[in-house]
Design a protein around this nucleic acid. Sequence first.
DNA 1: GATGAATGAGCTTTCATTCAT
DNA 2: AATGAATGAAAGCTCATTCAT
Lengths: 197, 197, 197, 197
Amino acid sequence: MKIAEKKALKRESIIQAALQLFATNGFHRTTIPDIAIKLQMSVGNLYNYFSSKDILAQEIIRYTSEVLGEKIREVNDTDASAQEKIKQIVTVYFTMAKEKPEMIEYFLRVYLSNREVFSDGCEGMVCVSGFITEIMVFFDENVSSGELRNQDFFSAFGLFMGYLGGMVFLKGEEVLPKEIEYYIEDISRNIYNALKA
Amino acid sequence: MKIAEKKALKRESIIQAALQLFATNGFHRTTIPDIAIKLQMSVGNLYNYFSSKDILAQEIIRYTSEVLGEKIREVNDTDASAQEKIKQIVTVYFTMAKEKPEMIEYFLRVYLSNREVFSDGCEGMVCVSGFITEIMVFFDENVSSGELRNQDFFSAFGLFMGYLGGMVFLKGEEVLPKEIEYYIEDISRNIYNALKA
Amino acid sequence: MKIAEKKALKRESIIQAALQLFATNGFHRTTIPDIAIKLQMSVGNLYNYFSSKDILAQEIIRYTSEVLGEKIREVNDTDASAQEKIKQIVTVYFTMAKEKPEMIEYFLRVYLSNREVFSDGCEGMVCVSGFITEIMVFFDENVSSGELRNQDFFSAFGLFMGYLGGMVFLKGEEVLPKEIEYYIEDISRNIYNALKA
Amino acid sequence: MKIAEKKALKRESIIQAALQLFATNGFHRTTIPDIAIKLQMSVGNLYNYFSSKDILAQEIIRYTSEVLGEKIREVNDTDASAQEKIKQIVTVYFTMAKEKPEMIEYFLRVYLSNREVFSDGCEGMVCVSGFITEIMVFFDENVSSGELRNQDFFSAFGLFMGYLGGMVFLKGEEVLPKEIEYYIEDISRNIYNALKA
DNA sequence: GATGAATGAGCTTTCATTCAT
DNA sequence: AATGAATGAAAGCTCATTCAT
C-alpha cells in the first residue's frame, strides 16, 4: 500500500474516533488527548493529520454530510414516486439515527451549536453541501415531474432538515414514548402533504 | 420598593444580560466575568443570585420558554381557525426571531446543544414545558374541533419545533436569501397541509 | 439584664457555635456565613462582636483552655494521691473528648494546625495558659510532695498533652478498636510510671 | 537515563518541594503556583504528575512515613536492649525534627489537621503504615523478649506518637527553653518507665 | 512519522470583609 | 444593633498546542 493511502486511512480512523467522542460528549468536553487515547496514538502525531481541533471538527462534518448525502442519492436514483422517496429518506435518516447515532448527533449537537468552530472554513452551509445538494436534487426533480408543488427551496429544505433533526433531538432527550421507527409513517405523510402539488 | 422586589428585578436583569451573551457568543465562550461586566456588577455578587453558571443557563431557558409560551397562549385564546392560528404562531416565532433573536438563538444554540449543562435539573423537557404545553393545547383543541387530523402528538410537535427552529437556524447562518418574514406564507401553508384533517 | 450582660451572652453563644463548626469542618472549611446561619444572625452583626475570623478563633481557644483548665483545677483541689489524680485527669480529658468532642477536636484540628491564624495574638502558648497552668500546678505540687520525680517541666507536660491528644486523635480517626474509656487504665498507669519518683 | 526514571525523579522532586512549602506555610496557604514556581515548572505540567493538590498531599505523607519508618527499622534491626532502642528512636525522631524539620512538621501540621484532604485515599492510618508498622514491630519484639510489659498496642503507640509529636510541636511554637536534644534523656526514660515490664 | 512532557492563559467558584440602610 | 448585598482578589484546575527527541 502506498504511503499516501496509509495516511488517508489513518485520517479516516481519526475522523471516526473523533466523531464518536464529539457526538457523545460534546465538542468542548472532548479533549485532544481523549481522541489520541481512543486511537492509541500520541497527541503530537494527531496534529500531523489535522492542524487544529477546529479543523478536525470541520472535516468531520464534511465527511458526515457526504455519507448522508450518498444515502439520499441512492434514493434519488430509484424510480419511486415522490411520496415513496420521502418515506425512504425519512427511513434512511431515522435508521442512521438508530444505527449510527453519532452522525446525526454530531450534526445536531456539534455542528448546529459551536458555530464559532465552523465560522472560519464552513461558513454558510459549505461543509454540509453533500447533504443539501441531494435534498435539492430530490426537490427539483419532483417539482419538475409535477409531483411536488413549486415553492421556495428553503421552505422545503427547512421542513426536511428541521423536522427530521427535531425528531432525533427528541429521541436523544428520551422524550419520545415510542421507538423512532414508529414515527416514520406519520412524518412521511406530513412531509408529503406539506410538499405535494 | 420592597427588597424582595428589587432582588427579583436584579435576577431578571441578570437573566436578560446572560441570555444575550450566551445566545450571541455561545455558552462556553461566555464567561462569568463577561456577564458581570455587562451588568456592571461584581462576579461574587452574581453568585448571590445564581449558584452556578449551569443553574443560570437553566433559569434562562425556563424564562425563555415562558415568554414564548405566553405568546402562543394568546394565539390559542383567539377565535381564529386552525389555519389562521398556525400562521399566527409562525409569525409570532419569526417575529421574535427577528426582534428578540437572542431568545430563539438561545434555544437553538445553547439549550439544544450543551446538553450536559441541562442534564441535571432540566431533564427531558421540563424546562421548556411553558412552550410545549401551549403547542399541545393548540394541537388538542384543533384536533377536537375537527380541523386537524388526529395523530401522534410528537409527530406534530416535532414538525412545529423542528421546522421553525430549522428556519431560524438557516437565518442565523445567513443562508436564507430573503428576510425571514418572506417564508411565513409558505411555511404556514406547509404546516397546515401537513396537519389538516 | 444589663446591655453589657446581653452582649456577653451573645458573645459566648457565637463562640459555642463557631467552636462546633470549626471543630467539625475545620477552620478553612467553615465560613463566616456558615456561623451566622447557625446563629440565625447576620454576617454583618457577627462582626460587631468579633473583628475578624482569626480573632474569633483565638477567643475560642482561650475559652476552651479555660474550661479544660477549670476541670483540672478541680482535680488539683482534691486530696487524692498523684497516681489517683493522674487517673482523674485522664478521665476528665477522655470524658470531655467523648461528651464535648468539639473542645478537644478544636484543640487538635484547629489550634495545633492553622498556626498562621494564632501567630498574631496567641504566640507561644498564651492562649492555652488556662490549661497549661493547671498541669503545671499538678506537676509542681506532686513533685514537692515527693510523689513525682523532679524533671524538666516540658518533658512532663509534653507527655500529658501529647499522649492524651494523640489518643483522641486516634479515636477521631476511628483507628481505636475499643471505646476511649477502655484505655484510661493503661494510660494512667503509663503516665504514672513515667513520672513517679 | 530511561524516561521512566526521569519521570520518577521529577515526581520525587515535586514531593520534596511541596513537602517543604506545605510544612512551612500550611496546606491551605500553599498554592499550586507556589509549588510550580519553586520548581521552575509550569502549573499544567505539575498536574501531569499529580492529579490534584489533595493527591499530592497524600503522596507526601506516604513518602514521609516511609522515610521515617525506614529509620526506625534500622533501630529495630540492631541488637540493642529495649531501653537503648527507645532512646535511639527518640533520637532519630528529634534528629529528624532538627535536620529535616519539614517531615515532622508535615506530619503535625498538614496530616493531623486538614483531615478532609486525606479522608478519601488515606482513611484511618493507611498512608502512615510505614511508620506505624515499625513501631508495632518494636513493641511486639520487646514484649516477646520480656523487656516490655504486655499491654494494648494503641496505649503504647499513642504514647510514642503523641509524646514525640507533642514535643516537636512545642519546639515549633518556640516554647521550649532548651534545644530539643536536651530532652532526649528525660523523654526516653519516661517512655521506658512507662512501658517496661 | 511518532512521542508526550511542557506551557500558561483562562476558566469557574469561594469567601472574608465592608457599608449603606 | 442589625442586615445582607456587594466586593474582588485569589484559588484549583483544564487543555489546545508546541517542540525537543
